[in-house]
Amino acid sequence: MLEQITFALGTMIAGVFGCVLYFFMSNKLLDAALPAKGVNAGRNINRANRIRPWLFMFPALFILGLYLVYPVFNSIWLSLHNRSGRTWVGLDNWVWLVKDGKFRESLFNNILWLITVPALATFFGLIAAALTDRIRWGNFAKSLIFMPMAISFVGASVIWKFVYDYRAAGQEQIGLLNAIVYGFGGDPAAWITLPFWNNFFLMAILVWIQTGFAMVILSAALRGISEETIEAAILDGANPWQVFWKIKVPQIWGTVAVVWTTITVTVLKIFDIVLAMTNGQWGTQVLANYMFDWMFRGNDYGRASAIALVIMLMVTPIMVWNIRNARKEDI
């Protein structure tokens, strides 16, 4: 234990000092190579200034390249090979993918998640932001709504397992949902095994988590709206409902879009909740969990890589759009 702590500390110190040393030395070297004096001082300063940003960005670019770009190409390569990753199989893995029923189920569920979760989380976040902005205990309410953000997906799943927990009729219901249903005289149900609808019960967990995120960002955006446009609208006769939907929301449309797409990207990668709640049984499989299944249970690098690439293909356009939008916001 002590050894591990010492090791961790050592790594941290070495890392930080290594970085400092790198920036310091590379800067020194550059200054030595292109001195800011002598006949060429002006030209040297210009050149050094052009090189310096790249010098400082190099470690980040290098690590990004190593951990992001290389894996993409390796995945493509793996998806064209067999389960061990040694024998070339051409498009076999992709053909399998198209025909595989479980893959289609995962894709369908993923799209279902994609439509439902960002919409609901953004909507609830917007409502929560609007409602908490004006009341005295709004900040307290905000902290409560934001709290789930701090819980890991697996932790959240454990909590919600208790919400959906099922005991046969007649027994004491320890699941919150069943306790309520039972309390009103209904029959307890095993919610997470109900085909199709169980998807939505899993989605509720992510909505519960992401609403806080949406609320915080949208609340900041709402506060950025010029108070005078709101007063002008009130003088123009708009009621609070109209002020909100016709004056406030359109003005933060850009932020809504960013929040929406950010959640969308999270949703596309959704894995932990499904793994912890159902592990893809009862028709709840999603792409990331399916990939994990083939990778570590099926031990098939080829198929897993093909699924991974499908996820990447779905995420990329949304990421690009998201980044563009975020940039537009700045300008």
């Binding site: 010029s226 005078e228 446009t229 007063e231 002008a232 609208a233 009130i234 003088l235 123009d236 006769g237 708009a238 004056i247 359109p250 003005q251 449309w253």
Partner: peptide, 19 residues
Amino acid sequence: PAQRGIAMVFQSYALYPHM
């Protein structure tokens, strides 16, 4: 405010930027 029969021009104009 809306029922007082008044209209106001603000210093910052307060135009609705999205319209």
